[in-house]
């Protein structure tokens, strides 16, 4: 009886064919192709053209890499994004730790407060920071009124203002990213460390932080790429002299109408982010391995 039951039924139909298996991928692939791959391809192609000459040329690329301004803009983009990545991660970590571990009744409120600003939108919040940071803004007025300073501090229309604004806008994403990583750390590990004599600070230093390093890397990566492609905040809080790739691209497309040059900048920005992403994900994978988790 059991022997019969185990015999393979040769009349059973085969599983779905190769084509059928891949069928569900067609709609998203088509969308990606039409709205991503093709326009990207067009943009790359555009960077090799010149409006007054026909055929492919590297003229716009030559211009980009020999021009002091575009190179400074690129450097500024990297520095700005790097600073934001660090600030976001440092500020997000304690908030994420609290949200991951706390059982207090304030947890839901803190969570809402962390995410809620996103509802207001980037531009609104950036202008809000302008009002707070500018020379006649809230902070400077208060400090002058208190007699702490005589001249206003330059808090806006520079790197400082932009980093503050971007950190604020990107912080919720950092918190969510770190939260995932922190929730993956077994609370018993912290308890074990504690009972072995570690103070809360030691627990965080020796146990929590090392085990969440992949999460830290991914938070920094996320903050970096969001920063590098940001337009509104650097434009509004950076002021006239603060040029990053995103604002330079805007200018080239809409003011100078030099689309070839703009395409070069966009490609450089893309490659920059791809490189950082590649380094980041490799690092994250290596760290996971090293942590033996």
């Amino acid at each position: 009886m059991s022997v019969l039951a185990l015999k393979a039924d040769k009349r059973r139909p085969h599983g779905p064919s190769r084509v059928q298996q891949f069928l569900p991928l067609f709609p998203p692939s088509l969308i990606l192709l039409l709205f991503f791959a093709i326009p990207m391809g067009m943009m790359v192609g555009l960077s090799f053209q010149q409006s007054d000459a026909s055929g492919l040329t590297l003229a716009s690329y030559e211009r980009f890499f020999s021009d002091q301004f575009t190179l400074m803009g690129m450097a500024r983009t990297v520095v700005m994004s790097g600073l934001v990545a660090i600030c976001v991660t440092i500020m997000a970590y304690p908030v994420a730790y609290f949200l991951a571990r706390s059982k207090s009744r304030w947890r839901a409120l803190v969570f809402a407060l962390a995410i809620a600003p996103e509802l207001a939108g980037v531009v609104l919040r950036t202008y809000g920071w302008l009002i707070i940071l500018e020379n006649q803004g809230f902070i400077n007025n208060a400090l002058i009124w208190l007699g702490v300073i005589a001249e206003p501090l330059p808090l806006a229309k520079n790197m400082f203002g932009v980093v503050v604004g971007l950190t604020h806008v990107i912080l919720p994403f950092g918190i969510l990213s770190l939260l995932t990583s922190l929730q993956g750390v077994d609370p018993n590990l912290e308890k074990s460390a504690q009972i072995l004599g570690a103070s809360r600070a030691s627990v965080i230093r020796h146990i929590v932080v090392p085990l969440t390093v992949p999460g830290i890397v991914s938070s920094m990566l996320l903050a970096f790429t969001m920063s590098a492609s940001a337009y509104a905040t650097p434009a509004i809080l950076g002021g006239a002299g603060f040029k990053v790739l995103a604002t330079m691209i805007y200018e080239q497309v809409l003011f100078y109408i030099d689309w070839s040059f703009a395409a070069v900048m966009a490609n450089v920005l893309l490659v920059m982010m791809l490189i950082v992403a590649l380094i980041g994900t490799r690092l994250e994978a290596r760290l996971h391995q090293k942590l033996h988790t």
Binding site: Q68, F69, A240, G241, K243, E251, Y256, D258
Partner: peptide, 17 residues
Amino acid sequence: LSAWGERWEREVVPAAR
């Protein structure tokens, strides 16, 4: 326009800070 734009960034904008 393009060359003047760069010159503006290079000479005029820094003077205001």
